[in-house]
Amino acid sequence: MSPLSERIQDYLPLLLTGLWQTVAVTALALVLASALGLLWSIMRSSGSRWLELPARYVVEFLRGIPILVVLFYIYFVMPELGLDLTAFQAGVIGLALTYSCYIGETFRGGIEAVDKGQVEAAKSIGMKHGKMMRRIVLPQAFRIALPPYGNNVVMLLKDSSQVSVISVAELTMQGKMLASSTFDNMTVFTMVAALYLCLTIPLNFLMRRVELKMGAAK
């Protein structure tokens, strides 16, 4: 076998393309999941049964299905229903749907934790529900929801490795292929783990910084 440093240099380009895919899948899924999660949480705290119930059922439903099954369903079943998706697209959608539930629950927890006195104060100056949510409740709810939201982001990043099962060439997938062609499991998977840590450690650090800053501005 060639020396370690050489092997690392050999493997790195391929793993970096995988890393890039991981970042892309995660980022896109995060944006979608956050938007959907916000929607679910707003529907569930709207006070209208016609909005509350559908959101509740969607969330209960999605939360009860393993993420792998969601991915298989979107990638393999959707085409049969006439919706052709690339593996990348299916991966983003599957992750986004699953995580919209977690993120939605996180936001909802934040909304519910806002002091009831805030709602009363907003009402007492004549605010209607929509404006009250936008200007008074949500800004405070986001602040409360930020730490668990940060956890969701890190978990989503790690769970993005699941999309390897539908052959998205992200970091885990690249690692697996590289390992099976070189039999150098130890080096390859150590590198894969290290590359994940290169993302998650700064992310954790960033989240803590933002939290501190928001806590100070309060």
């Binding site: 006195g117 805030q118 009363e120 104060a121 907003a122 007492s124 602040r143």
Partner: peptide, 9 residues
């Protein structure tokens, strides 16, 4: 209100 309920943000 008794507890002021100012908007903290």
């Amino acid at each position: 209100f008794q507890r002021f309920n100012l908007f903290p943000h």
